[in-house]
Design a protein around this nucleic acid. Structure first.
Length: 421
DNA sequence: TCTGGGGTCCTAGGACCC
DNA sequence: TCTGGGGTCCTAGGACCC
């Protein structure tokens, strides 16, 4: 039985999440900004129509935003994460064979559904997700993941598809001929330049290039991609995500940091965040990297550096990780710079349950485990950072800024939306 | 004044081993 | 002049994704 994939993708996900709880925004241009309200990371269709590009710094388009009364939001990851979960739970009802590919999209395997009318089924999925979550989605259906991505793109851009497009039910030459090569999944900026230089402008042209050329210029990944365009499925549905290989917390500061004590606070705070993620994934780390950098967009003296430390034992304890992170940051911190950003990266991850004990490890591991459980439980119940390490600081002048954040409508009783007649 | 964050995979080259 | 063959592991860098 040939594989059949559906790609379900939320339209303008972050912007749509904001609209669900604020219906007055219907039909109005919306943008959602990155951390520190720096760049545009999501746009409603109306905002796209104004020519607002993805990733553009907010300050560069401020007059445009004002002139068109664009509604501006800071990122509200708590809200988006919760809405994502609701969408995925809805999709699971339609198809248990599901790969959650990102916060706003999932691949479904429809291979067992051969007797169905896929377009109809896609419509049912779409209307149900809309009814249950308030979010609009598009559905693309095809024989491979890469083609399903393309089908989804067609569904999004062609109004008379009603948000569902089945590539199996039409001439794919026709569809692929209209897709520029840069819109193919796996073709980024650099490969686009290379392909264009060789006169390859569309997905259809890319599909017809011979294998040795692809192998030579695009490597094994490119060859797989081209096979997928030809309808040969090379990328399977991955229902159980592989365990993480790295975890990062890196952030630009709300205010530049110019003293070591402030940098230590920030690093300590970021380490706490990444340690929480580590425990949520039930992993322990054996390697820790700290990094810091000045503002690369600015004139003036630049400095950026990173240091990787091998941890004495695999650990998921915030105390252990902060100790190493501070040691690292003190080693690479240089006076006389204004720092813009820092980060903590954990690698060499192993399952927490089978973390190798060290012969000379004199700490009481059970005690530390109970402490971390209590810490996570309290912060889970009463809100992030209710309980935190003193080394993370109190005032936190460097904290990330969110000037336009909407309430956590779905995850905080105090922020429940109120409906009035 | 103001420019995000968090991931993955592949490849080439060097060190080292038999 | 002429300098094997094959394997593994690690790292840095480059490509991509959302």
């Amino acid at each position: 039985m040939p594989p059949i994939f559906a790609l379900v993708d939320c339209n303008n996900f972050y912007a749509s999440c904001e609209r669900v709880f604020n219906p007055r925004l219907e039909g109005k241009p919306i943008v959602v900004l990155s951390n520190n309200d720096g760049c545009v990371v999501a746009r409603s269709n109306e905002a796209k129509a104004l020519g607002i590009a993805m990733g553009v710094p907010e300050f560069q388009i401020r007059p445009l935003l004002r002139a068109h009364q664009v509604q501006v939001f800071s990122s509200n990851y708590t809200l988006y994460g919760d809405m994502s979960q609701r969408v995925m739970e809805t999709l699971e009802q339609f198809c248990p064979d599901l790969e959650i590919y990102s916060i706003d999209e999932a691949f479904l395997s429809l291979s067992g559904f051969t007797s169905r009318n896929f377009t109809e089924y896609g419509r049912t999925i779409r209307t149900t997700v809309k009814r249950w979550t308030g979010l609009p989605v598009s559905v693309g259906i095809a024989e491979t993941k890469t083609l399903a991505k393309i089908a989804n793109r067609v569904a999004k851009r062609t109004p008379d598809t009603n948000g569902v497009f089945d590539l199996l039910a039409c001439s794919d030459r026709n569809a692929l001929g209209r897709v520029p090569v840069e819109d193919v999944w796996g073709i980024g900026r650099n490969l686009t330049r290379l392909l264009n230089q060789h006169g390859i402008m569309t997905a259809l042209q890319l599909r017809e290039v011979d294998d040795p050329w692809i192998r030579k210029h695009l490597g094994i990944v490119g060859l797989r991609l081209v096979m997928e365009l030809r309808g040969v499925s090379c990328l399977d549905l991955e229902e159980c995500p592989a365990p993480k290989q790295s975890l990062t917390c890196s952030r630009a500061f709300g205010q530049l940091i110019s003293t070591l004590p402030n940098m230590e606070e920030a690093i300590s705070s970021y380490t706490s965040r990444v340690a929480e993620k580590l425990r949520r994934e039930r992993l322990a780390a054996t390697v820790l990297t700290v990094c810091l950098t000045t503002n690369e967009f600015k004139e003036g003296p630049h400095y950026s550096n990173a240091l990787t430390l091998k941890l004495p034992v695999a650990t998921d304890s915030t105390s252990d990780l902060i100790r190493s992170a501070l040691k690292g940051i003190r080693a690479i911190y240089r006076d006389g710079y204004h720092y813009k950003k820092a980060g903590v990266i954990l690698t060499g991850l192993v399952a927490a349950s089978q973390a190798q004990a060290d012969l000379f490890d004199y700490q009481d591991r059970r005690k530390s485990k109970r402490l971390m459980s209590a810490l996570d439980a309290i912060n889970g119940r009463w809100g992030a950072d209710t309980l935190h390490y003193a080394s993370s600081g109190i005032r936190k002048a460097w904290k990330t800024q969110f000037q336009h954040r909407s309430p956590a409508y779905t995850t905080d009783w105090a922020a429940l939306p109120i409906v009035t007649a």
